[in-house]
Design a binder for these strands. Sequence first.
DNA 1: GCCCCTCTTTGGACCGTTCCAGTACCTGTC
DNA 2: GACAGGTACTGGAACGGTCCAAAGAGGGGC
Lengths: 332, 332
Amino acid sequence: MRPPTIRDVAERAGVSKSLVSLVLRGSDQVRPEKRDAVLRAAQELGYRPNAAARSLSERRTRTVGVLLNDLRNPWFVDLLDGLNSLLHANGLRMMLADARLNRRTGQDPADPLLDLRVDGLVVVGTLPDPAALGDVAGRIPVVMAGSREPAPPGVDVVAGDDERGARLVTEHLIGLGHRRIAHIAGYGAVGGLRRRSFEATMRRHGLADRVVVEPSDMTEEGGYRATVRLLSRPDRPTAVFAVNDIAAIGALSAAGELGLRVPHDLSVAGYDNTSIARLRHVWLTTVDNTSHDVGRRAAHCLLERFEGVGGEGRIQLATPTLEIRGTTAPAP
Amino acid sequence: MRPPTIRDVAERAGVSKSLVSLVLRGSDQVRPEKRDAVLRAAQELGYRPNAAARSLSERRTRTVGVLLNDLRNPWFVDLLDGLNSLLHANGLRMMLADARLNRRTGQDPADPLLDLRVDGLVVVGTLPDPAALGDVAGRIPVVMAGSREPAPPGVDVVAGDDERGARLVTEHLIGLGHRRIAHIAGYGAVGGLRRRSFEATMRRHGLADRVVVEPSDMTEEGGYRATVRLLSRPDRPTAVFAVNDIAAIGALSAAGELGLRVPHDLSVAGYDNTSIARLRHVWLTTVDNTSHDVGRRAAHCLLERFEGVGGEGRIQLATPTLEIRGTTAPAP
DNA sequence: GCCCCTCTTTGGACCGTTCCAGTACCTGTC
DNA sequence: GACAGGTACTGGAACGGTCCAAAGAGGGGC
């Protein structure tokens, strides 16, 4: 009644358990007829290797932990795709954990993954307490993906090039003839980079005195409020570049409520190319982070560290692309 | 350099490994001073139990596998919250797997979870091949959550009461004075239930001849197209009830393009209360599935089955609630 | 002082793998 | 026919825990 073990398979095939182990791990030092006998026996018994026993013996789990900061915001899905493609090709499985779920239970979000002795850790997005990763990084390879927060030593960082993305948007708006361009800023490393790049790009085009920056908390509500403030200024901007899509959605609502048509009276651009930006009802001009690529690079970093390559933490940036949709148009 | 084991702790505390094991599992048959010595030694060494060794010996993993059908559509997040709260309280950890990620690699999406010998399985949403669960259900408890597909024998089903939810929406629209009410239908068990309940409710209110049903593929594009067809009919409906939020978003776009104002000229309602419905820019009237409750009930089912309660598969329905927002108003 | 009983503590078997050091057998060489 | 050198296979010791039977330590009653 218990699941069959390697010994059951061995007995049925008339060989030793060691030989079964050899066959199942694909050794070529086995005579074909024995190999077939073993495979047939395994098949007939419905044998599946016990991962716990294997990792106990091998002293590794062939598993990479993926720590997500918030499942509610699904921008990371493409990133996971990219991660998975490379990890899977290297015989590694992924194990997902939601930092938010475990946070309320009071323990370190990475604990369940560490208990399982994952061979490596990918942190997706911004973590409440990145410093805690320092200890972990001392034991297993750690990569932070999709976030630009300062990483503890020994941790690699892979993310989109926020500076370049913000420049793409700003130059797009300038190219459309906009001069009074406002930025709805966010917080954290990402917020800072996008904002500074916006300002620098404006300066480079001789628009230093037209720079308007309104802070926000990167939520829809925050984007809405910031836009209301912006649009009630005497020198109303003709374009708004929001730090992310969700704040841009708030900007769209504010424009609508104040009777401004988008993009006729006001251009709005976001950042992240979330699924919401792709909705026909929204059709938001935005920046795509090429998350799939970020995921692949993160996997690559991890694989290199498994091979012993590494040293200090590296930073890799993926090149974002501009997605021009329906919310930006020539200045009125 | 290797992580400390139970034997290292034992040596440091000056006791046997068995006693360490007893202490760590919370036995009360241990003298306080020894207990303290053990706990201190464990603390000092930074000992963490090896999950693989433990599950090998205990012959269970204290882990529940959660199979998600598509991370891209984050309606399941509240459900996971509910699941997690109860499972965590019972010393079980959750392990997430994305069926879509593994699908492209060609293997059964539950395979990684089964290799890890999870003690139970929760399937969230609709799976491509539910029949495959039959085999699994023979070995470990399986619960399907948030989907109404027919379940293999021995599998419990916990979901929202789609019949009731669709009735709530339909009666809300009828109560607002609407008579020509159209339904943008979906497919599958959920689509069928919502549609039949819509029709039955219309009949019960003497509106059998006003029933209009337009099929869709439950995407934004599908909702858009269905609505364009509906609105170009001579007897244009004054209200549209879409099978889910995302199709309702498509309906909003279609209405906008055809010059109809929502909710003044056309009321639109969705289903699922996704985060998109909560956006101020959308502010969609919809049905909340009380997913948190669904998750808790699913966890409860699983826990009961662990205790040996069970028998044939049961079906449990959670009571949905109507979220009235800005897209429904009295009939013109 | 001895026996019995309860409360603590311990050694060792076991869980299902991998891995290593052999063993057995075969083939070719001198 | 002895021997070297492969190739193909095997037994047993890990891996790090849990669990159980049994040993040791005290205490009380006679």
